[in-house]
Each structure stands twice: as structure tokens, then as C-alpha cells.
């Protein structure tokens, strides 16, 4: 080998070595300095990242956010995380690389989603949480959240009124990684547990999913056929529970309580098939979050970190006031 060949080889090796070292060092230091470039032409872009679109309530949340952002002059795109944190992370990577101006965000996991929000923040993209929170107050620009705990305190009080101070019931939990699941459960139990005669015979997760709730309750009913009530952590699971009870001829005997205020459950409340639900206001939350995005882009920086939104009890007595995921007649 002549000297020239040897030097060239050495130079290539040094280049490879320094490149590898630079990549390793950069990865270790958490480099993520992609600057957000807005799209050169057309309106500024806003991403709407939703935990799942396999539930009508979240479809309403996503579409209301997209529509309000569009009204305010933005090009809004919905991303479905399918309740999968890995998909959510992948959406964030695409959004950061694609020059979006802001993210309207419904997280899959209160803890697991924090890293995504921080990544967007580091890239200069503000994140506005809707309905579900993340367990950090220094990552998102604002969080508009349902007051699930207080809603379920009201629901728990009504549950005791309707079921009585003794009886057996089942609780269907939502996604275990979501704070809303536990805020609802704890709000409900803060009331119901004060009555020792009310016995919870089973507490199982059905992931906020109607089909899973149907399966889970069918299985529970085999072991505990004599229940008096079901408290479901959302309306999709209440529908699944009602379906399971109807299939076994128990729908008239077992009182079902939901949470969300979806149109199909509000209708079943008016028909007396489901006893009560709690109306969250997805359109109010989505519109407020989209308006916060607009204010941010116009220069506003002073947002309350968390804004709880009141939840209202829907029963046969007041069901006429509710519909279309809110108060009837409200925008």
C-alpha cells in the first residue's frame, strides 16, 4: 500500500469515528433542535392529536377543535393515536418535522405523554391539552380539563339516592394510565364508600371501550348474577354494560350509570334505560383550547396552566336540557 492510499484510509476512519462520536454525544445530550418552520404558503397549520377516534365522544372533541381552528384561519389536521403511546410519539415526530405552529392535544397517558409535550416545547411548538391532563405543569402551555372528580361526586350522590344505601354493584374503569379514570373513580368512591351497605363485587378496566365493557360485564355476571347497579367510567362502557344486561334479561333490574353525556346515552336516560350520566362539554373544551392557540399565536403568553370545566349531572328530571354534547341550543 503506498503512502497516499494509507492516508486516505486513515482520513476516512477519522471521519467515521468523529461522526459516530458526534451522533452518540448528540443523542446522549438529547439534541432535538429542529426549528419549527411554518409552511411557506397558505394558512398556519395546527395539529389536533387525539387519544382515540374509536369513541364518538373523542370524535366530537377532535372535530370541534379542528372546526374552531379552521374558523380562526388555521389549517387543522387530526391525528389519531389509537390509544397507543407509540403512535402518539410517532405523530409528534412527524408534527415537529413538518412545521406545525401548535398542537391541540388529548393525551393517551398522563405520565407517558409528558415526554412528547416536552419534545414539542423544545422545538418551539406550544401544546394545549384538552380534556385529559398530563402530570406536569411546566410542559404544556395550557390544559383545559373536565372536572371529573366533582362530576363523579354528584353522580355518586345520585347513585346512592337511586340504588339506596345497600346493594351490590360493579365498577367499570377506563384506561388505567389516564388520570380521568381515577378522578372519576375516586370522586364516585368518595361518596359511595361512605355507605358500608353498598358492596362493590367487581372493579375491572374496560379501557373506555364499548365492546370490552360488554365482554367484561358478561364475564362478571357469570360470577355475580345478582348485582343491583353498574357504574361505568364513560358512556361507551355504559352502553356496553347496558347491552350485556339486555342480553341476559337484566336491563330492567340493574341500574346503569355512565359518564360523558354522549347523545346515545342521553337518549337512553330520557327513555329510562340508563339512570344517569354526567355531561362533560367536549365542544366547550375544544373551542376554548383552539381559541387559546389563536391567542398564543397572536402573542398572548399568560394562560392559566389548568382550567377545569364543570360537569353536570343528567337525569330523567333534567335530560330535556341536554343534547348535542352540551346544553341544548348552546353553540
Amino acid at each position: 500500500m503506498n503512502r497516499l492510499q494509507f492516508n486516505r484510509k486513515l482520513t476516512i476512519e477519522w471521519l467515521a469515528a468523529t461522526t459516530v462520536a458526534a451522533i452518540v454525544a448528540c443523542a446522549a445530550a438529547g439534541c432535538s433542535s429542529q426549528s419549527p418552520s411554518s409552511s411557506s404558503d397558505g394558512p398556519p397549520r395546527v395539529a389536533v392529536v387525539i387519544s382515540t377516534l374509536n369513541n364518538p365522544w373523542f370524535v366530537v372533541l377532535a372535530e370541534a377543535a379542528r372546526d374552531r381552528a379552521t374558523e380562526l384561519g388555521y389549517e387543522a389536521t387530526i391525528f389519531d393515536s389509537q390509544n397507543d403511546p407509540a403512535k402518539e410519539t410517532s405523530h409528534y415526530e412527524n408534527i415537529i418535522a413538518s412545521g406545525y405552529q401548535a398542537i391541540l392535544f388529548n393525551p393517551t397517558d398522563a405520565d407517558g405523554s409528558i415526554a412528547n409535550v416536552r419534545k414539542a416545547k423544545a422545538a418551539g411548538i406550544p401544546v394545549f391539552c384538552m380534556d385529559r391532563e398530563i402530570n406536569a405543569t411546566d410542559a404544556a402551555t395550557s390544559q383545559i380539563l373536565s372536572d371529573n372528580f366533582s362530576g363523579c361526586v354528584k353522580l355518586g350522590q345520585y347513585f346512592v339516592e337511586q340504588v339506596g344505601k345497600s346493594g351490590k354493584y360493579v365498577e367499570l374503569l377506563g384506561l388505567v394510565g389516564d388520570n380521568n379514570t381515577w378522578n372519576r373513580s375516586k370522586g364516585f368512591h368518595s361518596v359511595v364508600d361512605r355507605f358500608p351497605g353498598l358492596e362493590m363485587v367487581a372493579q375491572q378496566s374496560a379501557d373506555f371501550d364499548r365492546a370490552k365493557a360488554l365482554e367484561v360485564l358478561e364475564s362478571i355476571l357469570q360470577a355475580s348474577p345478582d348485582i343491583d347497579a353498574v357504574f361505568a367510567g364513560n358512556d361507551a362502557m355504559a352502553m356496553g354494560a347496558y347491552q350485556a344486561l339486555a342480553a341476559t334479561g337484566k336491563a330492567d333490574k340493574v341500574k346503569v350509570f355512565g359518564f360523558d353525556g354522549t347523545d346515545d346515552v342521553v337518549k337512553l336516560v330520557s327513555e329510562g334505560k340508563i339512570v344517569a350520566t354526567a355531561m362533560q362539554f367536549p365542544k366547550v373544551m375544544a373551542r376554548t383550547a383552539a381559541e387559546n392557540v389563536d391567542s398564543y399565536i397572536q402573542g398572548e403568553r399568560d394562560f392559566p396552566q389548568k382550567t377545569p370545566v364543570d360537569v353536570e349531572l343528567v337525569t330523567q328530571d333534567n335530560v330535556a336540557q341536554f343534547g348535542d354534547f352540551g346544553h341544548k341550543g348552546a353553540q
Binding site: 402530570n135 405543569t137 372528580f149 388520570n179
Partner: peptide, 8 residues
């Protein structure tokens, strides 16, 4: 509420 990272 904004002083509490976890609303629970």
C-alpha cells in the same frame, strides 16, 4: 389547581 401537577 394549576399548582398541582396531578389534579387527583
Amino acid at each position: 389547581v394549576s399548582d398541582f401537577p396531578n389534579s387527583q
